Amino acid sequence: MEKTDQYLSLGHYSIHTVRNYLSELRYLLVYYAEVSPSDFTEDMLMEYLLYLAKTLGC
């Protein structure tokens, strides 16, 4: 999380954008709590995005 925060800070994103991105990243990490982030696959990320779209209406 800290490394992501640092990368976003380098991009000159607003504090609100950084906060929102980190919040969404936390949700993703909770969704796949049993998986190391380094083991995420494109299919897993697509599954999560479909979950957001179908279940939460995002």
Rank of each mutant, 00 (worst) to 15 (best):
Y27P: 03
P37H: 07
L25F: 13
A53Y: 07
D39C: 11
F40K: 03
Y13C: 11
Y13G: 04
L28P: 04
S38M: 10
T41H: 06
Y7R: 12
V35P: 02
Y21T: 03
M44P: 01
E24F: 11
Y48M: 11
E34P: 03
E47P: 08
E42Q: 10
G11I: 00
E2W: 14
V18E: 05
S36E: 13
T4F: 13
M44C: 11
Y48F: 15
S36Y: 11
D5C: 10
R19V: 02
L25S: 04
L25M: 12
Y32R: 04
E2V: 15
Y21M: 04
L50D: 10
L29N: 02
Q6Y: 13
S23N: 03
L29Q: 04
R26G: 00
I15Y: 10
Q6H: 13
Y27D: 06
M46T: 06
Y51Q: 07
S14L: 08
A53M: 06
S14C: 06
R26V: 00
V18R: 14
T17D: 01
V18K: 12
H12N: 13
S38H: 10
Y7W: 11
L45N: 09
H16S: 06
E2Y: 15
H16C: 00
V30F: 12
L10E: 11
D43N: 13
I15H: 08
V18N: 03
T55K: 09
L56T: 07
T4K: 05
Y27M: 08
N20Q: 02
L49A: 15
E47C: 12
R26H: 03
